[in-house]
């Protein structure tokens, strides 16, 4: 399912909203969530899961071409932890052949 599929589904659910607004609403939600993570804020959606940042400490990496050691600086990466309802529903549906 892509973003446009999701917009279609929500538009079908919400016939009182004009299509353009559904589109803007989906983009607005994703933007609000992205901005929160960029600012280091957690997102907690009950029944779905939570998004947060995980810290990756600085490490010694290697240039694969030359083999030279380089210091790779620390960074933060977005992380998602599925909530209970999502975990259970996804696991119960596992008779479906689908994967990724």
């Amino acid at each position: 399912m892509t973003k446009s599929d999701l917009i279609e589904k929500l538009a079908a659910d919400q016939p009182q909203l004009v299509y353009k607004d559904v589109e803007l609403a989906v983009k607005g939600l994703l933007e609000r969530m992205s901005d929160a993570l960029v600012d280091g804020e957690r997102i907690e959606v009950r029944g779905f899961g939570s998004f947060s940042l995980h810290h990756r400490p600085s490490r010694i990496g290697r240039n694969p071409k030359t083999g030279a050691a380089v210091q790779v600086p620390d960074k933060y990466v977005p992380h998602f932890k599925p909530g209970k309802e999502l975990r259970e529903r996804v696991d119960d549906g596992k008779s479906d052949p689908g994967s990724s």
């Binding site: 999701l6 929500l10 309802e85 999502l86 996804v90 479906d96 689908g98």
Partner: peptide, 9 residues
């Protein structure tokens, strides 16, 4: 809708 999609694989 996201949960539903994931639930159905």
């Amino acid at each position: 809708h996201v949960r539903e999609a994931l639930e159905t694989g």
